[in-house]
Design a protein around this nucleic acid. Structure first.
Lengths: 85, 85
DNA sequence: TAGGTATTTAGACAAATATCTAACTATTTT
DNA sequence: AAAATAGTTAGATATTTGTCTAAATACCTA
């Protein structure tokens, strides 16, 4: 839960998630959407992976990142506990 | 949205929200549930207020904090955009 | 009015974070 | 085999964050 909120607490990482919502993308494609250096994006992807928000798959020299929704469901559950009964 | 995720990115602040889920409480009552100093808790409450997750109401020397769900709904909406159609 | 209680503000500090450049690893291409 | 491409790792640095103690503010009560 900590890693999840930590990962979500950054606008760039949230934008990456929204990018991946459309379709899986390679690290380079993701980096192209931002003005930060590739190492910076790589680091953001690492935090997203630690939170299990994305999974990565290496094919040759490319690493494809895919959105992983199951953890969002956990967040959803946490959220719903606040809903009035 | 930034203030919201920032506020949620701390276990103590999330615990405060869960405390307030049951009922409104004064700053002192909230502080009694944790081992941190009162100024520290006051600062956490300030961040929660900045994110509009709680509202505060001063009555005499007491300040009562109340959970504010409307912002959670915003988070819920953000979350649901990731749901498969 | 003096003293006590509730809370916040101010200032300091260590730890965590986001970013960069340089260097490295792994893979593909010529 | 050499060079190019994709991506990560390492190390540095400025900023942000969580915490504390001390001091200030506001209110209440004797």
């Amino acid at each position: 839960m900590n890693a999840l909120f930590k990962a979500l607490n950054d606008p760039t990482r949230r934008a990456i998630l929204e990018l991946l919502r459309e379709q899986p993308r390679t690290a380079g494609e993701i980096a192209d959407h931002f003005q930060f250096s590739k190492p910076t994006i790589s680091h953001h992807l690492d935090l997203l992976r630690q939170a299990d928000l994305v999974s990565s798959d290496k094919q040759g020299q490319f690493v494809t990142y895919t959105l992983n929704m199951t953890v969002m469901d956990e967040l959803l559950g946490w959220l719903l506990q606040f809903q009035k009964p």
